[in-house]
């Protein structure tokens, strides 16, 4: 047996490990359940050190599921549900980051997310359970359905070449359906991107309405998040008008969902993950190719949805869905063609 190490004069190993290639197309174990595992020991998250192990005397925090610009999402065990023998007492719990939680608007923002999500009753929109405040640590949180599966950004990492149409349609149609429904209810998501869509055991779920907004007259009284005081976006998925003027409409969701669909179909973001304003200024739409595995009938709709100019982005989520199901008359007799 040879020692794999060669030593240099310092007594330290000289090793030339092979460089790693990003994993290519791996088998997809979407819903593989892990066996019972021995408890692992993780260092405690210090930023949340002020957060107790049990929130509101009821939700026992078990593990970090995700963290974003504003909040952190944990898997928690609902001790009350467990006490009554609930076979699945697990929930997901979202709290705001500590520094963000201190700003006066913070719980209003979280409440708005809760309220917008609850307002939408659709199989492909995540279900929220409740809005709570832990009085001891003075933190508001949302409890919601615990999704088990893969977010679309995880899926994209496992499938770097994108998905064949048969699989793609099973994600895209429910996603567009959820978006069409939300827009029909007057709710704009505001932050559609792969990590805000989950392919769960129970189907596709759109979630994270944290930057969402209700249109005039919908949910009156709900404090509207002012984009002047609270302007946030995800660079690779925000439409130009959102980046430039903070202008959020259903059309911005269309641009974002089109980027997601394009990426799912081809494995590549349409504009190399660049901010849309930069992609526009570099005229990247000129060379935009239809993803090879996407049926031809879907491309005019997808390309329109990817328009940088809101005027050219003349398609709704419902029309996109219809174009993708093939039940659409759109866009064959469209009068106005996008200028690009």
């Amino acid at each position: 047996m040879t020692d794999p190490l060669q030593t240099d004069p310092d007594g330290q190993a000289l090793v030339a490990p092979p460089d790693d290639d990003p994993p290519s197309d791996f088998t997809y174990y979407a819903f593989a359940q892990s066996k019972n595992r021995e408890p692992a020991r993780l260092s405690a998250p210090s930023a949340f050190s002020t957060m107790p192990d049990v929130l509101a005397g009821r939700y026992c925090i078990e593990r970090l599921l995700g963290a974003g610009g504003m909040g952190a999402v944990y898997r928690a065990r609902d001790l009350l549900a467990q006490q009554y023998g609930d076979p699945d007492p697990y929930v997901a719990l979202k709290v705001l980051n500590e520094d963000f939680a201190e700003s006066p608007d913070a719980s209003a923002v979280l409440y708005s997310e809760f309220c917008l999500t609850r307002y939408l009753r659709h199989d492909n929109v995540l279900r929220v359970h409740g809005f709570h405040v832990d009085t001891a640590c003075e933190r508001a949180f949302i409890t919601m359905e615990l999704m088990r599966g893969l977010t679309l950004d995880q899926l994209l990492c496992e499938r770097p070449l994108g998905l064949p149409w048969q699989e793609l349609r099973q994600i895209v149609l429910p996603l567009l359906d959820a978006l069409a429904y939300a827009h029909g209810c007057g709710v704009i998501h505001g932050d559609v991107k792969p990590s805000n869509v989950m392919l769960s055991e129970n189907g596709v779920r759109l979630f994270d309405f944290g930057l969402g907004r209700a249109e005039e007259g919908v949910l009156p009284g709900l404090p509207h998040l002012s984009r002047e005081r609270f302007n946030a976006w995800t660079p690779g998925y925000a439409a130009p008008e959102l980046l430039e003027y903070g202008q959020l409409s259903a059309s911005a969701d269309i641009y974002a969902v089109a980027c997601v669909i394009y990426e799912l179909a081809s494995g590549k973001h349409p504009f190399r993950h660049l901010p849309s304003t930069q992609a526009r200024d570099e005229h990247l739409h000129v060379g935009l190719q239809a993803p090879a595995r996407l049926p031809k009938r879907c491309w005019p709709a997808l390309r329109t949805a990817l328009a940088f100019d809101t005027g050219d982005r003349a398609i709704t989520a419902g029309q996109m869905r219809d174009a993708f199901t093939g039940s659409s008359s759109w866009p064959w007799y469209r009068k106005i063609r996008p200028s690009w």
Partner: peptide, 15 residues
């Protein structure tokens, strides 16, 4: 690799 994407491209940024 997934976390690299998550942290580099998926996070919401505040102005």
């Amino acid at each position: 690799h997934w976390l690299n994407r998550r942290l580099g491209q998926e996070l919401t940024v505040n102005a």
